[in-house]
Design a protein around this nucleic acid. Structure first.
Length: 657
RNA sequence: GCUCCCGUAGCUCAGUAGGAUAGAGCAGUUCCCUUCUAAGGAAAAGGUCGGGUGUUCGAAUCACCCCGGGAGCGCCA
């Protein structure tokens, strides 16, 4: 049992004993200031009202009760205390300070099984479908997609680490307007040549934004694109085939970008296959029969099929005023969501419902699958196919949990999909589907200006836009980081690892749900709170360890604990220990909250503590044998925890820097 | 018009299941390499937590109202 649960148990017991109250939950936190202790609880203050007593009195009484319990761990038949002290303090906190012995024993826990420290193994591996990246196959990926992919890879690795079986899906809309626009542009804009670009998707980036602006200004071109879209409905038409080829060509380039970052996938889902296999038709059969899905015979959405979104139960007692505004609104905005257009073609949201029914295995059909031959990743990458030539012994359908790393602008569509699943009676599936709605990546005015964006309007941030051709391509960003690292440090072996560390950490260190303002100069400065800082600390521990032939010996635990009991170790050493034991809870929390920044912050703090220690105390020339042994164990533990932590962030720990 | 998100140091951001003195990094000012990696460490400086009112033992965190920024509400995807 972990320390937190043990503590919780003791607190419950004491409260029950003293006040005959069964606590619903025990609030435990790490005090801000470590001199107060390692854990603190506010139960006394929470109880104050119920038991009508001064919080400090309650804290005192609970504290004395807990002090009377035997709080110990047993190693080799000997008992060692867990807490150094248990105190109460104004205004009513109870503080628990972990003992040196207990803190030290964590090193044994880490070193005995380093790969698994912080992980957990579930007996029934739940299958997770994780959808991320999803760049439209008509242009190069930019740093907004980068944030998506990094977040996706973080989730892939942490959920695997926590015992889930994760399958990564990359959805590619090979039949959409965006590809149609690019495809028209390639034909018409002959003055832009692919040979002028380092990658085909970079060429497509320019073609797309230029074509898009032409189409916006020209009704004939608009019509032409509509006609093309119409032809694409038939998956066997020459237009469809041509378009799919173009999409595939660009997809291959995008995958090269992600390969360079070390991000890989299990399966590519082609939208054209969803269409060709008539998954939508299957889903629609079920949807049509539902009372919350209806055909609009008249009104502004006449001829369409809609899913009910508006809450009819809500507006029982509406004021005149709100009724009026509602009527006004009705003229402009359809409250329910159209899933089939009047011309009979499903909308994107409609197709997405079908796609999600497939994910959960609710649609009765599956894709065929064939192995991809892009050569962009070492593990198998599968492509969906609509033909019967696919592998039969593999399926990505029928998962337990769905995680979608998709931008916030699609929140509404995702809600409709969830709601539709619920309407169809798949309540559990609906609840097991989570939209990880990460924040937008904006450009700082300075960075925007450098890209040639007009910043005379003086905004504080500028959104990227594929349509306008505004944005920093991932490939270009990577190249700039490479150049910066080489100009600072010359060429070195681990350049690619360090560059990926810099790039990925930069994307993961912020709160997932917060919009971020990307400033290139800032991102290129990889000092301080950055990936390379963590990697550097790792390499530093490696360097120390490589200088000795020291080996961890777990049989020494009793002997060491006895020494630890009676010796005063340095504050700087204790400080590292006080952070090390938190790793498992940090991993669990950052996974459950989809918050890599929690792990980033933790690893940074851990490194700071270690570096402070490193700077002040000598490891290899420690004053006595035990100190040296202890400091090597500490260094080795940091080494293992950092490599585990970096791995979860999708970052390679370089042996040397 | 309606809904949602955001506003914390010069800049970029942590901190929001209410907790103890609001924290980092960058930039700027000082120090520390004859010692295990200076991509490092130490110190000082930097704040009306957008504004106001309220809830309570306690508010950056919760509620309400303003102000400022962004996104969504497509027969686009």
């Amino acid at each position: 049992m972990d320390i937190k649960s043990i503590l919780e148990q003791y607190i419950r017991k004491a409260v029950k004993q003293k006040y005959d109250v069964e606590l619903e939950k025990v609030h435990l936190e790490h005090p801000e200031n470590e001199k107060w202790g390692d854990y603190a609880t506010n139960v006394a203050m929470e109880l104050a009202k119920a038991v009508k007593q001064n919080p400090i009195e309650i804290a005192k009484s609970i504290c004395y009760e807990i002090r009377g319990y035997e709080l110990s761990i047993t190693e080799i038949d000997k008992k060692y205390k867990i807490f150094e002290e248990v105190n109460f303090v104004q205004p009513g906190f109870i503080n628990f300070k972990l003992s040196q012995e207990w803190l030290f024993s964590v090193l044994y826990l880490i070193l005995a099984d380093p790969e698994d420290y912080g992980s957990s193994e579930l007996v029934n591996k739940k299958r997770v479908a994780l959808e991320h990246s999803n760049v439209n196959p008509n242009k190069a990926a930019h740093i907004g997609h980068l944030r998506n992919a990094c977040l996706g890879q973080f989730l892939e690795r942490t959920y695997e680490f926590l015992g889930y079986h994760v399958e990564v899906q990359y959805y590619t809309n090979d039949l959409g307007v965006q590809v149609a626009t690019s495809s028209m542009g390639i034909e018409k804009l002959q003055d832009i040549k692919p040979s002028g670009y380092k990658k085909y998707d970079h060429y497509a980036w320019d073609v797309y934004s230029k074509m898009e602006s032409y189409i916006n200004e020209n009704d004939d071109l608009k019509k032409e694109r509509e006609n093309l879209m119409h032809k694409l409905e038939d998956s066997t038409s020459t237009e469809s085939i041509k378009q799919k080829e173009l999409a595939q060509k660009i997809l291959a380039e995008q995958l090269k970008t992600f390969q360079n970052l070390g991000v890989d996938y299990d399966v590519i889902i082609y939208e054209s296959d969803i269409v060709a296999l008539k998954m939508w038709e299957k889903a629609f059969e079920k949807l049509k029969q539902n009372e919350n899905v209806y055909y609009a015979a008249e009104g502004k959405s006449a001829g369409c099929w809609l899913v009910k979104v508006s809450n009819s139960a809500k507006g029982k007692e509406e004021s005149e005023e709100s009724k009026n505004t509602k009527e006004n609104k009705n003229e402009e905005i359809e409250e329910d969501k159209i899933i089939v257009r009047a011309n009979g073609i499903p909308t994107y949201t409609g197709k997405d419902i079908a796609y999600h029914m497939w994910k959960f295995g609710l649609i009765g059909i599956d894709f065929g699958y064939k192995k991809a031959e892009f050569g962009t990743q070492s593990k198998d990458l599968w492509l969906t196919t609509s033909k019967g030539d696919g592998q039969k012994n593999i399926s990505f359908s029928g998962v337990d949990i769905v995680l979608n790393v998709i931008g916030g602008e699609q929140t509404y569509a995702m809600e409709v999909v969830k709601k539709s699943l619920e309407y169809l009676g798949f309540k559990e599936e609906s609840q097991n589907m989570t939209h990880i709605n990460y924040g937008f990546v904006y450009l700082s005015p300075k960075t925007a200006q450098n890209l040639g964006i007009d910043t005379s309007d003086g905004k504080e941030k500028y959104g990227m836009s594929g349509r306008k051709g505004w944005g920093i391509k991932i490939d270009d960003f990577i190249e700039l980081v490479d150049e910066k690292l080489m100009s600072d440090h010359g060429e070195f072996e681990s350049l690619k690892d360090v560059r990926n560390g810099a790039v990925k950490f930069e994307m993961l260190k912020f709160n997932t749900f917060q919009d971020i303002v990307f400033d290139l100069d800032n991102a290129l400065n990889v000092k301080g709170f950055s990936g390379p800082y963590i990697q550097y600390t790792y390499a530093r521990t490696n360097s120390v360890l490589e200088r000795t032939n020291w080996m961890f010996d777990k049989s020494l635990i009793g002997y060491h604990l006895d020494i630890m009991k009676n010796s005063n170790i340095n504050d700087k050493e204790v400080s590292v220990l006080r952070s090390l034991y938190k790793f498992p809870e940090i991993v669990a929390r950052s996974a459950m909250e989809f918050a890599p920044n929690i792990l980033c912050n933790y690893l940074y703090d851990l490194c700071q503590r270690y570096n402070t220690f490193y700077n002040e105390l000598s490891i290899l020339n420690a004053p006595d044998e035990f100190s040296k042994e202890f400091r090597l164990m500490l260094t080795s533990s940091i080494n293992r925890v950092l490599s585990n932590g970096l791995f979860l962030l999708g970052i390679t720990a370089p042996r040397k820097m």
